[in-house]
Amino acid sequence: MSKIIRYFITIFKGGLAFFICLCILSIFIIGYSYPSIHTENNSGSTDWKLADNQLRTNMVEGFSWIKVDSNGFNNEFIENNIDNLIMGSSHMEGYNVNHHENVTYLLNQKDVGYTYNIGISGHTIYCCAKNLEYALEEYRPDRYVIIETDTVNLHTTDMKSVMKGTYLNPGSSIDRGLKRKLKIYLPAVPMLYNQIKIWRGGDSSADLDDGSSMIGYKNTLNKFIERIANICQEHNVKCLIFYHPKTEINRAGEIIKYDEDYAKLFRECCMSNGIDFIDMTEIFNELYNDRHILAHGFTNTAVGTGHLNKYGHKAIAEAIADFIKNDRTVREE
């Protein structure tokens, strides 16, 4: 009997030690990499948003400590009258750089009117296109809606589903129930779970390729862009899409060129639908060739990969500000 009791005491001791360990790790994770909580966004302007006024820390990819605004987005301050609205993915959520280094903050320093950012992770151009109408209704920007994309080689099936209204975000990540509670009270648990998932090899995402022809692709892309243009026209706002390509380098030390033909096609479709388009390829190339600076990557990650760094954010902000200040619409080009 005493042996059984001893076993129970040992198990209890182990369990308690494990729980204390989780508490210690949670404190560490709050400073090291606290991803914040994803909540529903009932307005539909985004599929989800961050919990209001939350702290978001990141030392996994870059080093940043930011505080989310009262709407659940990454903005330093909120004004009532929005001139420009930014929509986009985690690049625009900008949790890899500090507040004063992201595109939105820099644009707000450049006399182009007040810019508000609703960029959030997992919101690719498909997702932005799907939510565009709701976003414009909610925020009613006066001048521009700026949409970020890191690819111009889009999937026809996804574009079609956006146009049909059936598009579902594959990376849906609203924190509910136990997951939400753990993220709030014991963030070490979801962090460990995610790391173990990657460790097991469950994080590989296959690249979709629907094998459509270039002509078919162009038609679909044109309709997709046209849809965006129509929504913007209805809301009497200009649309600016900017594309920032990856900045990986090859063995010769040159930036690898991706999707040049697709970028050309994308530009054509934008022009024909009256949408402004900024391709950051040349600007990023110049940044690298002149100053050996890459727009992506951090001192704690692989070179030139991953999210936009502070140089990438700065280059994009300057390009957008230059564009808006000079009102260089596609028609004038």
Binding site: I20, C21, I24, L192
Partner: peptide, 22 residues
């Protein structure tokens, strides 16, 4: 010892949190 166990678990946890599994 209890606190040694806590320390060991924390070390293992940190290894997983900080680990690169690519």
């Amino acid at each position: 010892r209890f606190w040694s166990l806590v320390l060991f678990f924390t070390f293992c946890g940190l290894t997983i949190v900080l680990g690169y599994f690519g």
